[in-house]
Design a protein around this nucleic acid. Structure first.
Lengths: 96, 96
DNA sequence: CCTAAAGTTATCACTTATGATAACCTGAAT
DNA sequence: ATTCAGGTTATCATAAGTGATAACTTTAGG
């Protein structure tokens, strides 16, 4: 099992990628994960779309980060890229 | 930052909890995470619902696991429980 | 410049999630 | 047996995600 995080950090060695990454707010963490997974799979939006029996425009919409995709949608996306998703919960600063 | 995973494993020391947990398919991992977060926050469904300006029936629906909640919905839920969510991607068995 | 691949945006129809209300079930305590 | 807190289920209206098609922009190569 290779962690996506490791792959991402490797990609961040690239200054260009790093700059792009830093610019993105945590709001886009999910979108970044999606894009990274697809790129790691070596797929274009169109190819991924075909695997998911949908259209490249819909893939683009997911990766733009301006929507609120369902959990199962994300899982399908990940699986088509050769990944599996899980949620991780960490305590927030403000406890009860 | 205390990891939810640690808390969960602690809870799984309890044989009762463990048995219940093993019975649940990965399909319900998300639902388990939601319920665990709420319980760690010491909240009832009704109390959590009030924090999210919604109704306890809607909380129940999320925790039943038979729907496909949006990512931002999950984040709001987690935050109201004092947690923050992140996605984790791991390589699936079947690569490209 | 021209072309093609890759990605984006706009739009529509359809499906589904969410907000909301109410009734119901369960277990615990008295 | 009653009561009550906690959770579930049913249902409806509304908001939003998704499937689908088409046109557009951008980039890379020739």
């Amino acid at each position: 099992m290779i962690n996506l995080k490791a792959l991402k950090e490797q990609a961040l060695q690239n200054p260009e990628v790093k700059a792009e990454y830093d610019r993105l707010a945590p709001e886009f963490e999910l979108a970044n994960t999606l894009i990274t997974m697809r790129q790691q799979a070596g797929l274009t939006q169109d190819e991924l779309a075909k695997r998911l029996h949908t259209q490249k425009s819909n893939i683009s919409r997911l990766e733009r980060g301006d929507s609120n995709p369902g959990w199962k949608t994300l899982q399908r996306y990940a699986k088509a890229c050769g990944f599996e998703l899980s949620v991780q919960a960490q305590r927030h600063k403000t406890a009860v």
